[in-house]
Design a protein around this nucleic acid. Structure first.
Lengths: 246, 246
DNA sequence: CGAACCTCTGAGGGGCCTTTGAGCGGCCGG
DNA sequence: CCGGCCGCTCAAAGGCCCCTCAGAGGTTCG
């Protein structure tokens, strides 16, 4: 079976081959980070820096999905979207856009089944949105099943953004939710504070690892509250999430 | 079968040939120490002193992994990472960075599945991280199986950073963990205190061999506690770890 | 426009880890 | 048999890691 670089079974095309994703951004560093994260999901990645080379790459790769910066040096994302649909009508598109970008045009996009995230984003969010898109479009085969993450009696419904522990609802803020999602996607594995920062916080976050400690303590108060702890500190290494009794 | 210089079966590429690793550091002494340790793993090593020659070497060697100093005389780590991925998209990268540069521009690097260690590091840590990377990337074939070390009834899960003896959990500090990992990777072999210092402690450690004795005694208290001892002293030579009944 | 919520910073404190030093016991050589 | 060396352990200092509290600034929502 095709697997991610983390060992977890990968989200694949229906025939089991790796999903193909094209990353289009004119910032080479950002494109590199993005494609690294997506490659880590076990997918096949290509990058492009402008609209013209994006189209050329798309014609060659026939990607299942495209991560597309709205602001490109030679053209804008919407024009590229039209051309992409001409090349491959069923392609999924995830837009990258500035926070204060034109909301109305973006709104029209999501109606077509595509989606967007605003810069600066976290990699966890990009990956999650992309997985959601591919799943809903029927382009991806679920190795596990459904959009639910389960670790012990802790259950996360990613689409409903709902978390329960032992059946009880746990209410989380956005950052808490993303942190817990990252932990739940890597159960029984020690994650360093740097790893967590890189995945859960925005790529331009300048802060220190201290925030991770803080949010771990928030999560503990809500997820572990009064119960047997699932979140453990590994001194000098990081944090682990694991079921109470393995 | 391909083996390490120590006789232990080596971690190899899927086809059984030795893994190829490129070491890039502008300090020749450090590069030498590193490549010595990696060669000891049974891998094929090349070194480079700057970004340009690193790329040239990469094009020729097509390495499975690169150990890469972030501070290079001619360029920075991010640019090299991009170029390396262009040469070989599935290459694993382990960055070496100064402790106070961690916050700097490392952001996003671990997100792609790559990893880093801060200077001063221990060789055990570098080797362990590299093995982890290669294993997760599916570039390495397990001679034993999985990310678990087993000696007798002593079991170490490196990813969960969990150790059990006879099923019972053994809690270890970071240094204790690394020392035990070194012992478990070299079972039934006498390791001198100097060897242990060189591998487990940082390369700039100024202390004396006395610490090794102390940490061995800590390990005994936790690992051998009340049970048949697995850690043995070989007077005048060093220490051995072996199963209770060979 | 106000209130609630969320995120992040800074400071304080507690506890674990690492290292050092010293003392003791046992093994080995003289 | 005795002295010296090697290894083991205890005790304590210091540092570092981690947790928590309190509050400011920003954002969202009513």
């Amino acid at each position: 079976m095709n697997t991610t670089r983390s060992g977890r079974p990968a989200l694949t095309r229906p025939d089991g081959t790796p999903l193909r994703v094209l990353v289009v951004d004119d910032d080479p560093d950002l494109a590199e980070v993005l494609s690294g994260a997506l490659r880590y999901e076990g997918w096949r990645i290509r990058t492009a820096g402008d609209g013209a080379s994006a189209l050329a790459a798309a014609r060659e790769l026939l990607p299942d999905a495209v991560v597309l910066d709205v602001m490109l040096p030679d053209t804008d994302g919407f024009a590229v979207l039209r051309d992409l649909h001409a090349v491959k009508p069923d392609v999924c598109v995830l837009f990258l856009t500035a926070r204060d970008a034109v909301e109305d045009r973006i709104a029209g996009i999501t109606a077509g089944g595509d989606d967007y995230v605003t810069k600066p984003f976290s990699l966890e969010e990009v990956v999650a949105r992309l997985r959601g898109l591919l799943r809903r479009a029927g382009m991806a085969r679920q190795p596990d099943e459904g959009p639910r993450l389960v670790v012990g009696d802790l259950v996360m419904d990613e689409e409903a953004r709902e978390v329960t522990r032992g059946g009880e609802l746990v209410e989380l803020s956005p950052t808490e939710f993303e942190l817990l999602r990252f932990l739940m996607r890597n159960p029984r594995r020690v994650l360093s504070k740097a790893q967590i920062l890189d995945r859960v916080w925005s790529y331009d976050f300048g802060g220190r690892a201290h925030v991770v400690e803080l949010y771990i303590s928030y999560l503990r108060k809500k997820v572990d509250a009064g119960r047997d702890p699932m979140i453990h500190t590994v001194r000098g290494a990081g944090y682990v999430l694991k079921p109470v009794t393995p």
